[in-house]
Amino acid sequence: MFDNIPSHYLIIGTTIMAAFMGTFALFVRLRAQKKPVSAKKILIPPFAMSTGALMFIFEEFRVAPLQIVEAVALGLVFSVILIATSKFEVRESAIYMKQSKAFPFILVGLLVFRIILKTLFADSLDVGELAGMFFILAFSMLLPWRIGMLIKFKKLQKSQIIA
């Protein structure tokens, strides 16, 4: 599929795309903090992202079992950071994400880390394989984070009803 395009062009193109997507995600998250949260808003991103797993239909995106374990492990480590920094607050009887000064830095840090990893592994892994690993890493980070957010949200929601 990518045989006619030199790999360094693919690496540069996907890195630029990742930077744009990361910037977009940052602005979306910062804007979302101004609106009340709901269970639906918490759960939509993992469901929407899960469609990306269709990439594994194509051979060039498939990764070895050890690479899957590595990507999942790294994603879980990153999710712990995101879970720890995601907090809710009640304002005007609605639940909002608490604005965290650390969140933009965490997102930018994760993006920079991703670019560094991509640069380091670009010579040893195929571009498609690398894309598959980063999808697995991102999904392994997003799903536990959102489940953690949902648990915190439900606890706060329940305590608000009781109070």
Rank of each mutant, 00 (worst) to 15 (best):
17 M>G: 11
35 K>F: 13
152 K>W: 00
129 E>V: 12
67 Q>R: 11
30 L>S: 14
87 K>P: 00
93 S>W: 10
163 A>G: 12
39 A>K: 09
68 I>E: 02
147 I>R: 00
87 K>T: 11
118 K>P: 03
126 D>M: 07
65 P>G: 03
86 S>V: 05
157 Q>G: 03
125 L>Y: 11
148 G>Q: 05
36 P>V: 08
134 F>Y: 06
26 L>Q: 06
106 I>M: 03
66 L>G: 08
39 A>H: 00
31 R>P: 02
22 G>W: 04
147 I>L: 11
71 A>E: 03
69 V>D: 05
27 F>P: 03
101 K>N: 11
45 P>F: 02
97 M>W: 09
12 I>V: 15
113 F>H: 13
40 K>W: 07
160 Q>V: 05
148 G>Y: 04
71 A>H: 04
163 A>P: 08
141 M>H: 07
105 F>K: 06
126 D>V: 07
95 I>W: 05
162 I>T: 09
69 V>F: 07
95 I>K: 01
116 I>Y: 10
52 G>F: 09
3 D>F: 08
98 K>M: 12
116 I>K: 04
49 M>D: 04
55 M>G: 09
70 E>D: 08
18 A>G: 09
32 A>M: 14
133 M>T: 05
115 I>F: 08
23 T>P: 07
138 A>W: 13
85 T>I: 14
150 L>V: 10
148 G>R: 08
123 D>C: 07
65 P>Y: 00
89 E>H: 06
41 K>S: 14
16 I>P: 09
101 K>G: 14
156 L>G: 04
151 I>W: 01
146 R>P: 00
162 I>A: 12
6 P>I: 07
28 V>K: 15
53 A>S: 12
69 V>M: 13
136 I>S: 03
137 L>Q: 02
106 I>N: 02
18 A>D: 05
134 F>R: 00
120 L>I: 10
131 A>N: 07
108 V>R: 05
112 V>L: 15
120 L>R: 15
40 K>I: 12
91 R>S: 12
5 I>N: 04
32 A>V: 09
26 L>R: 11
51 T>Y: 10
133 M>D: 07
7 S>F: 12
141 M>Y: 09
102 A>Q: 14
163 A>Q: 11
40 K>E: 07
66 L>E: 14
102 A>K: 14
115 I>P: 01
58 F>H: 11
37 V>H: 03
16 I>Q: 06
14 T>M: 14
130 L>A: 05
14 T>G: 13
53 A>R: 03
41 K>F: 09
133 M>N: 02
28 V>P: 01
44 I>F: 10
